[in-house]
Design a protein around this nucleic acid. Structure first.
Lengths: 142, 142
DNA sequence: CTTTTTTCTACAGCTACTGTAGGAAACGAA
DNA sequence: TTCGTTTCCTACAGTAGCTGTAGAAAAAAG
């Protein structure tokens, strides 16, 4: 039987996070010691490791809840699991795309900065320079 | 004089977000109409556009607060602004790196799924398969 | 037996907003 | 001017996914 602290160490999770998972219902209420402390077995260890690994892969807790539900009902097809993973992949790719665009703009901005005085700092000018943004919203909104 | 709604439309911001920015002190308290409604001028429009543009580039509100402070004190060097932008670029690059690693693992996972029954779903197996994670934390923690 | 570590509950705080309720102000049309 | 619609006001709760705190009890170590 494992204490919450041991479980935490073994899975690289903080103790409060485990209690939080219990609170939101993705970890079960475990048994207790005589003194009222949580005691876990291997099943809970596996479940928590699954959750943490999925979190590391960027799955939301809601998606993980779905995955756990699916894995509890073996009569359903693997296709549903696949769909969740595909969705996750698409989200990751979208995020990468957005960040790459940011990187381009940041690099351009930084490249133009020649370490002069504030008055003509290119970075601030670029950030202040919202012409495109403004007209964007103007045309779009009105 | 602009109403808060007009300012919102022009900058692509929600009305509540503007009030939130005022509350946390990165937008000033504006003048009011006779009836007590907020009225803005071009200075506030510029400031808000600066904030929104910076947010779109991934800067945190804290970083933006710094940038605004710096741009209010023109005697300081552009190098400080450059440092903030560089830091931001490094963060963006780190995030891209992490997401690319995720993408690799997700693709591998999905590739192995052959749409069979749950019992032998590769995706769930991969997610469940935490050997590496466990030993990682085991060796690292103990 | 004493000291230190761990655990307990309950709650506040974090980022950056977003949404809601209930009411007042402003604006356009008749 | 009156009506109806839209916008605005304040104040507060909620979102995701935790993290940190306080004060007390239980467990482990010496």
């Amino acid at each position: 039987m494992l204490s919450i602290g041991t479980l935490a160490k073994r899975t690289g999770t903080k103790v409060q996070t485990i209690r939080y998972y219990e609170q939101i219902g993705i970890m079960p209420e475990p048994g207790r010691s005589e003194g009222g402390q949580r005691r876990y077995g291997d099943e809970e260890l596996d479940r928590l490791a699954f959750i943490r690994h999925s979190r590391q892969l960027g799955f939301s807790l809601e998606a993980i809840r779905e995955l756990l539900d699916l894995s509890d009902s073996p009569e359903r097809s693997c296709a549903e699991v696949d769909a969740i993973a595909q969705r996750q992949l698409r989200e990751v790719e979208a995020r990468i795309g957005r960040l790459e665009a940011l990187r381009v703009e940041l690099r351009r901005m930084i490249g133009e900065c020649d370490q002069g005085q504030m008055a003509d700092c290119r970075i601030l000018q670029v950030l202040r320079d919202h012409e495109e943004c403004l007209t964007d919203h103007d045309r779009g909104g009105a």
